[in-house]
Every structure is written in C-alpha cells, then in structure tokens.
Design a protein around this nucleic acid. Structure first.
Lengths: 211, 211, 211, 211
DNA sequence: AATGAATGAGGGTTCATTCAT
DNA sequence: TATGAATGAACCCTCATTCAT
C-alpha cells in the first residue's frame, strides 16, 4: 500500500529536483557569463525556459540561488576527495592526485564562478551566513592539504624550511584556475599538460633537495 | 596675446588634471571597498567633495572611470619596471627584483582592484575595448618576464624542460595578490616574509637542478 | 434511477455548500486580520486546509470572495431583523432593540470587516457591481430604521424638527463599530455599557423634549 | 552680502517645498481615490507631471509619503484649533466651534483619507512609528475635547451621568466624515446644514436636562 | 474535483546619466 | 563650468489566476 504512494511522492520530488537542477545549471552559466549583478533572474528563467516566478518557487531569492549553486558543487566535490586521496601511497602522491582531481574537476568551475562573483554582493557575508556548506568545502580541502604537506615533511619528501601555511597558500595560488590562463598560454597547452608542468614546478619548489 | 592666454590655458589644464586625479583616487577607493556595482557615482563624487555631474565633465561614464584608473596605474607602473630591472646583473636577480617590485608596489593594489571588480561589468569586454592602455601594462610585463626567463634558460639558471609560457603563468599565479591570503595565512606573515618564501618556492621550482 | 441520483446530487450540493461556507469563514478571518491586500488566497486556502485552486472552483476570484462574504452575512442578518423588531411595542423600543441587535450582532463584524477593507480594491465599485445582495442589506436596514423613526415622530416620541435622513445618518454614525473605539475608551467599558450610553445620547438627542 | 546668498538658498528651498507640496497633493488625491495599495507611485508621479524617480528624491518611500501627508495636514490643522476655541465663551460654545472647524475643515479630508487607507499597510504601525505628528494631532484633539466636556459638566451645561470618555467617543463617531454620507443623505443637505443638525442631536444628547 | 506548479503582469525602488540653471 | 534635480530603464520580487495532472 505504501508502495503505491511512495513512488508517487518520489516522482514529484524527483521532478522538483530535476527542475531545481536545471535552474541551478542555468544560473551557474549566467552568473559566470555576466557576474552576479548583470545576471538577471529573467535571463536565468529564460534560459531554463520557465518564467521568473517559477524560480522563486524553488529558491527564496537571488542570493539563495548562489548559495544553492555552491552547496550543490560542494557536495559533489567533497564526495570525491577522500576516494582520490586514499588510493595513493605517499603524501606527495596523494597531493598530486588531489591536485589532479581539483584541477580537472569542478573545483575549477567553482573557483572560476566564485572569482567571477567575488565582491558581487556581500558575497563574503552571504556565503558565510547562508552557506555553511561553502566553508565546509574550503576547510575540508585546507585540512587535507595541510595534513599531507606535514606528512611529507615528516617522511622527508618535503623541505621543512618553508612554513606549511606558505606551501598551502602556494598550492592554491598555483593551481587555482585563472581567468587569464588562455590569455597567457594561448591554445598551446591542454589542461593536462599544464597541470603536469605546474605540478613539477610546485613539487620541485617545495622539495627537500638535501635528501 | 597668445602669450597671455597660453599659460592661462595650461593653468586650467593643470587644474583639470588635478581634479581628474582626485576623482580617480576616490573612485579607486570606493571601487575597492564596494566593488564595481555597489560603488555609486554619488559616493565617489561625495568623497571628492564635488557633485555627480562634475565627474561626467571629466569622464564619459562609470566604465570609463574604471578604464582611467587602470590607465593611470599602468603609466605609473611601467615607469618603474625598467629602472628596477636594469639595476640587477643576472636574469634571475632581475626577475627577483621585478617580483619584489610587483608584489610590494601598486601592481598589488591594481590586481586586488581588478579582482574586486572582475565580472563587475562586462569588465572583460570593457578593458579590451576601452583600455588599450590596460593591455599595454600587461604586454610590457609579459614581455619583460618572458625575456628574463628565456635569458635565464640560456645562461643555465633556469631549466629548459618547462615551457616558458608555463613559467610565465606560474609567475603571475603565484605572486598575484589573492583575496584569500589573510584567510590562509592568518596574521603570521608579513608581506616581505611571504614574498621571500614564495620566491624560494618559485625559483626552486623552475631552477635547473642539473647545474 | 433519478431517485437514486437526486439524493446523490443533493449530497454533493450539500458538501459543496459546506465547503464554500468553510472558505468564506476563513476568508472573513483573514480579511479582517490583514485587510484585503495583505490577505492572500494562499493563506485563506491554507486555513481551510485546501489548495488555492479549489477556492477558484467555488469562487471566480478574490473580489467575488468578498462579495460572497457580504452576501452570506446579509442573509443571516436580514433574517434576524424582523423578529427582533416585531417583539417590541413602540417605535423607540423597536429602534433600541434593533440597535442592540446590530451592535452586539454580526453587523458589527460586517462593518468592521468593511472598514478594514474599504478602499481595499475598488471595493466601492465592486460592491455596487457584484453585490446586489450588499445593497439589499443596506436598503432593508435603512428602510426599517426610516420607518421606525417616522413612526416615532408620528407618535410624538421623536422630534420632528430634525430631518429623518439626518437621524438615520446619526444612527449609523453613532453605532457603527469604530476601529478607534479601544483607543478612545481604553478598557473601561464593555460593549454592553457602551451601547447603553450611546443609546441614551442618541435618543436624548432626537427626543421630542416638548412632550 | 549675506543678503545676496540667503535668497538664493531660499529660492531652491522654496522650489523644493513647492515640488514636495505638489507631490503630496497628488498623492493625497490618488490615495483617496484608490486606497493605499492601488495607488501606484507611477500614477502619483504622472499626476504631478514628473517621473517616479523624482518622488524618491523627496520621500524615501511610499509609506513615508503617507506619513508626510499626515504630517502636513496635522500641522495645518493644529494651528487652527486654539484660535477657534479661544474665541468662544462657554465650553459648549467652544465645542460647537471646534466641531464646526473640524467638520468643515481639512480634518474632514484627513479622516476620509485615513479611512480610505486604514488597514492599507500596517498603517497603524506606520503612523505610530513614523508619524509622531499624527499622534500629536489626535492627542491634541482628544485633550481639548475632553477638557471642554469636563468643563461643561462643571458648569452644569452637560450631564454628569454619562462618562466623558463615551461623550468623546460619540463626538468623533458622530462628526467623523463617513464614506457613506452621500449614500444616506442624497444631495438634500449641505455640509453646513448637516453639521447644524448633528450638533443639535449631539448637544441635546449630552445636555443636562435637569438644569 | 482537487492540486499546486507555473505564469506574468505589476509594483516599489535604485542609480547611471542628462541638462537646465 | 559646476551643480544636483530629474529622468527612466531595469531589477527583484509578489501573488492572483490558470491549467495539466
């Protein structure tokens, strides 16, 4: 009997989720293309093929739409991190795998989106207020990398003469997707090639050359 | 007669320039504090102590105000680069000096400003369209760094096994001021310490270790 | 067959009526609490425990819902008037009874509702257009009071030196529930006390003091 | 010298005031015609012959526009009250004069406006919050009438057997302009006639008949 | 017949830009 | 030339109403 009703409910739930997913995707596109302010609810709606009002049936407002984007991406992303890391033997190998995962995965998109919106609203405030999940992604990432770097120091793979925090900072600086990458690199490099080179620079840069 | 008028004209010209400078300074402040959208012409004018309308006597619009900021910074900046570079002997020393100059100078502010506004407007389009001068800074910087990197390769200071373009990219990635620097680093490092560490990572990363 | 169906139909009819009654009650509540504009169909529906759409199966729109409220109240009210009046001997006694009936009965609510919504919509137009029934209540009331006042004049209970129309106007002015009653009176008076005093003022005011 | 500047300033001030006055007048019209909600800033602006935005240069928002209306009316009104009262000898005469003043003056419009908007917004809240002046009018009026009624009781003109508060309430009930006055009275009475009759009813109603 | 997701017109508000003074 | 009042387009959001299920 409940088997009769449960599917019915999940059908609607499912449709609702699909619709929300479509909205989030469109919003993501438009936000990235135009930035937070020039992205209008109207255009987002139009790109989904629905009306403005419908968005508000799914998300309370524009800010919450941004928060939802981050939340979704965060969830997807966090799920992958552990799997990737555990598959590798040494701290350095783990870091390299993490790096590959980040750079080729949706962290790339996320960061690009973030940077396209930073200082959009009080995006800082907003993400702190509404998106506990956003901080989660960040903290999870930071704690993983920190742990790996320190393990690397312990096993002698990584030099101890540079503070871990600086290495952490370099890590994110070097591998964060830049909006000017194409500008600098032209079309000469694939993502894969680029990341391979950057990896070499980074690990050479932090390597323990005395070993 | 014209000898009477010419100085008068230059006086006015001078005053005009001073006024524009004041506007640009105020605009720079407000844009960085609030981002492109939340910065209002009203507030910029108020901070200069003039009226909105007067801004329009000097700049055609808000976008052009941004362009003017970049243009002025560019000019100031370009003037310093050559001096700094020429004072050093080797390619690597030149690069390090350039780096120091960049990181401690106003390129820092410029970048921060840029990132605080990126995707504010169609800032991408705008800078391309209106800011020929913007590209100038960029291209000058790029050509200098490229030249130095290649010279370093020639003299054997720098490994030839990584493409110059990638090194270039790394250079800017690693040393560009990030909005999350304080977040990652806390208050533990001064700018000077940080740049010293990053320099070590970078040059170790691209060093020719066979030498 | 039709004997089978007829009761079925009336059952449905009855249920339909009950449903409409529930909607009207909820609407009345919400309209009075929030006023016409801030009352949303959503909330009315929610308070009945049905969906918005269902309301539209019973009433063509929000305005008609208001009209229906007045219509129902009118009917209920008109039924009481005659009974009350006939039970009294003299015109003045009839008027006093009527007054008591009005003031303690649902005319009070009606008027409060009306005033809470007046100029809500083009409520004026609407009531004229849609609520023939509304005018009915009004006209019935007016004709009864007019008749009683004139009878009172004839029997010498009421002064003839004031036009009946003015007395009529005073009647409604004095006894209409005001939204500021609590404001002026504080908590010092019960409805009963207040109406007793007002009755005295009114009848003293219109009394034939020569008699 | 200051005589040169002062007029310049007052000219602009004056123009500003005139413009505000025009806006308030138009707003008053539209609010009364349509009620708070159906009155759109657009229409108010159109009726002044200006654009929507201009209204916002004078008033922070729609609610404040309402508050401004009340404030202005209040000021105008309060100025008249004392003058009118002092010119009369006895409490009753003062009350009658006050009544005449109220009924024929702009209190009439004010009340009509108020009633046309009551329950519009949280108009209650709003007026309390923003329009200290609104309460002022009310309290001033109430305190005057109360005082006069009690003086009347002391000198024996007015019966002591009805609480002053009730008389107060009756006073406002009877003389407040009603939206249904024309409905009840037709075109048979002028304001003057009507107020004369009501005055008689009221004072007869509260008179001390034992005297 | 009931649902509630979707619609879309409409409203208040902001602000870059213009222009009469 | 400087001013700042005025403009008006654009935006976010609400909610009565509709309609596919």
């Amino acid at each position: 009997m409940q088997t009769v009703h449960t599917p019915t409910t999940s059908l609607k739930e499912k449709q609702r989720h699909e619709r929300e997913e479509l909205i989030i995707q469109a919003a993501e596109e438009v936000f990235e293309e135009k930035g937070y302010y020039d992205a209008s609810m109207e255009e987002i709606a139009a790109r989904v093929g629905i009306s403005k009002g419908t968005i508000y049936a799914h998300f309370p407002g524009k800010e919450e739409l941004v928060a939802a984007i981050f939340k979704r991406n965060t969830q997807t992303f966090l799920q992958g991190i552990d799997v990737v890391i555990e598959a590798e033997p040494t701290p350095r190998a783990k870091l390299e795998a993490l790096l590959q995962f980040i750079y080729t995965g949706l962290y790339s998109k996320q960061t690009r989106l973030l940077s396209s919106m930073y200082n959009g609203v009080d995006l800082k405030r907003m993400i702190v207020e509404k998106g506990g999940s956003m901080s989660d992604l960040w903290e999870c990432l930071v704690s993983h990398v920190t742990k790996l770097l320190e393990e690397g120091k312990v096993v002698g793979e990584i030099t101890s003469s540079i503070p871990t925090k600086v290495m952490l900072f370099s890590f994110f600086s070097l591998f964060s997707p830049k909006s000017y990458d194409r500008l600098l690199l032209g079309e000469d490099f694939s993502h894969e090639e680029l990341v391979a080179h950057l990896r070499r620079i980074y690990f050479n840069g932090i390597a323990n050359h005395e070993a």
